[in-house]
């Protein structure tokens, strides 16, 4: 299009006007969001950063004072004076790393079961998706308090007895994992559906062809099924981390909320907490992305680099 425009200056002017109209309408459509994101995301981020690096005084509005004991005073305070936050954060991080593979493996297995030829598929789908609708923070904490969050038949004591020699920051998350296994599995409703949708797109003829060539079910799983759902594993992993980090029964969020309105802690303290939390979540997200991204990307990038080098050498 641009090549054509260069040939004919008259065309170019018309195209430019049209392009400008495109730009204008593009911005018109996203305008509400731009206003919103500037106020409620970008400005809010800057504000919370400023809070976390200063002392907040509340008197007829918010007044920020510079910190006396070093720039990172609030952050240091979070780790030195707070009893709960560091341990809760460590438990959250290790717990997330433990829960993620459990949720991913479980939802893939369920999706595979649902994808086989069975009756009442929609009934089962309905049951597995139900928690997405009802699993909220208050409901989950009620159920955990009642002790119905763990699988009743499984005796965990033997296993946990063996593990009790482990250091506490590893033992506690494992213990949590077992004692609230149902609540963790309740987080897999969307993931099951995403996997299932991906599995249903694999043509059946592919499996039949593999079978004729003598591939076992096991082999076709590794060679056909897994490569097809691979991009969905990344999607599900990120989705799982985001949902676990932002919603449900998350103790850290509660700690931050309470700190905000506690006289001895206050706004800047809570914001320092939330930035530490954001940092931890971001690091986990980056790790998850690097772990689950498609390896072929690396190959493509390598090829691109090589061709770029070749081109440069040729010139």
């Amino acid at each position: 299009m641009s090549k054509k425009a260069k040939k004919n200056p008259h065309d170019k002017r018309r195209l430019t006007r049209r392009t400008l109209r495109e730009w204008g309408f593009g911005y018109l459509f996203i305008l509400p969001w731009i206003v919103g994101v500037c106020i409620f995301f970008l400005y809010a981020m800057v504000q919370s950063l400023r809070f976390s690096f200063s002392r907040v005084e509340l008197s007829n509005g918010v007044i920020l004072h510079p910190l006396e004991n070093g720039l990172f005073e609030n952050f240091v305070k979070v780790f030195t004076t707070d009893v709960n936050f560091p341990t809760t954060l460590a438990n959250f991080g290790v717990g997330l790393v433990l829960q993620l593979p459990v949720i991913l493996a479980f939802s893939l297995i369920i999706a595979l079961l649902l994808n086989s030829k069975i009756r009442c598929r929609s009934l089962f789908r309905m049951i597995f998706f139900l928690p997405v609708i009802i699993a909220t923070g208050p409901v989950m904490s009620r159920l955990t308090a009642q002790g119905v969050s763990s699988v009743p038949m499984v005796s965990q004591n033997a296993l946990l007895g063996i593990l009790s020699d482990l250091p506490e920051f590893i033992y506690t998350p494992i213990n949590n994992l077992f004692s609230s296994l149902i609540m963790i599995l309740w987080n897999s409703g969307i993931q099951i559906l995403i996997f299932l949708a991906g599995l249903q797109k694999v043509p059946r003829t592919l499996y039949e062809a593999a079978k004729i060539d003598g591939a076992s079910g096991w082999e076709s799983f590794w060679k056909i099924t897994l490569p097809t759902v691979r991009p969905l594993i990344l999607l599900n992993a990120i989705y799982t981390v985001v949902t676990l980090a932002t919603g449900g029964a998350n103790e850290i969020i509660e700690l931050i909320y309470n700190a905000t309105y506690t006289a001895t802690q206050g706004y800047s303290y809570a914001m320092a907490m939330s930035w530490i939390y954001t940092l931890v979540v971001s690091v986990i997200l980056v790790i998850v992305f690097l772990l689950f991204r498609e390896k072929s990307d690396k190959h493509v990038r390598y090829e691109q680099k090589r061709s770029a080098v070749k081109a440069a050498a040729g010139r």
């Binding site: 994101v37 504000q47 905000t260």
Partner: peptide
């Protein structure tokens, strides 16, 4: 803008909640 959109999706909303409240 797309980058900001995705960032807003990924990051927990606890950092922005208090300034928005204010």
């Amino acid at each position: 803008w797309m980058g900001i959109l995705i960032l807003a999706f990924l990051l927990p909303s606890q950092t922005t909640a208090l300034p928005n409240y204010l």
